[in-house]
């Protein structure tokens, strides 16, 4: 079976961020751990046995819902998908909330800004159906091409690590990698006819991304956010606004020929 063995238990220290609304400090907890456990298991154990009021978000515990985002040993990760055997065994493990969002309590942050941003993006606008029964015909290859964008579980780790948001706090000017990816998913949907390019340039701040790929590195779904979503969108923006020949052509033809 797996390479994992039924090894015994050991003690390890976990430094968890405790506090409310911006105040707080790391607090050490000693936990009994075994191989195969994930960080979320330890947080639950501490919650049940030592700190009933320890706040954390979680749901599926299988890397599918994107609720348990945190910074583990300083790196943005899902607590449910971070196995202890991937972390140094002989040092304390630090777990703290995502730092790019307002703090609520302990490991929980206020991520509501993300939900507001999404509302601003033009929704899906399908072309007229292909068949009289109101259905469409799509080739598998065309579906496959955009599935990568649609795997996103909205954990917001990419938003957390993006320096435009985290360090420069440009939440009003920039929608962040998650929503550039979302815009790409819509723009490249085989049925969509909406045009989000002007908004990407003017309202969503795509020019602020300088392609450091930090978002791609932390994506638990391994989505190539920068290469496959942001750069193609930047190219569309460039084609539309900075390409004189293209602009001429556009005057005579529709931009999207879907």
């Amino acid at each position: 079976m797996s390479t994992m063995t039924d090894s015994g238990t050991r003690k390890q220290t976990f430094s968890l961020w405790r506090g409310e609304r911006g105040t707080g400090a790391f607090k050490d907890y000693e936990a009994t751990v075994t191989d195969g456990m994930v960080v979320l298991d330890v947080v639950h154990q501490i919650q049940a046995e030592q700190a009933n009021d320890l706040a954390c978000r979680w749901n599926c515990k299988a890397g599918k819902c994107g609720s348990c985002s945190a910074e583990i040993n300083g790196k943005p990760k899902l607590m449910c998908m971070t196995r202890l055997d991937q972390l140094p065994a002989n040092e304390p493990v630090t777990v703290e909330p995502m730092r790019a969002f307002p703090h609520v309590k302990d490991l929980v942050t206020d991520v509501s800004w993300n939900f507001e941003v999404k509302k601003k993006i033009l929704k899906f606008v399908p072309r007229a159906p292909d068949a009289p029964d109101g259905t469409w015909r799509i080739q598998q290859a065309d579906s496959d091409r955009v599935q990568e964008y649609r795997k996103c579980i909205e954990c917001f780790l990419c938003q957390d690590v993006c320096h435009v948001l985290r360090d420069h706090h440009m939440h009003d000017e920039f929608i962040g990698p998650r929503f550039l990816l979302y815009a790409a998913a819509l723009e490249m949907h085989p049925l969509d006819t909406g045009d989000r390019v002007p908004a990407l340039k003017k309202d969503f701040g795509i020019g602020l991304c300088n392609i450091t790929k930090c978002c791609t590195e932390v994506c638990p779904e391994h989505i190539q956010i920068t290469d496959n979503a942001i750069i193609p969108l930047k190219e569309r923006v460039a084609d539309e606004y900075f390409d004189p020949l293209g602009q001429l052509v556009q005057i005579f033809s529709r931009r999207k020929e879907k």
């Binding site: 929704k123 899906f124 399908p126 159906p129 292909d130 109101g134 469409w136 015909r137 799509i138 080739q139 598998q140 579906s143 955009v146 599935q147 649609r150 819509l186 949907h189 085989p190 049925l191 969509d192």
Partner: peptide, 12 residues
């Protein structure tokens, strides 16, 4: 029609 993208048959 609301944007879900399912896997396809050979005829789409």
């Amino acid at each position: 029609a609301w944007g879900a993208l399912f896997d396809r048959t050979p005829d789409g």
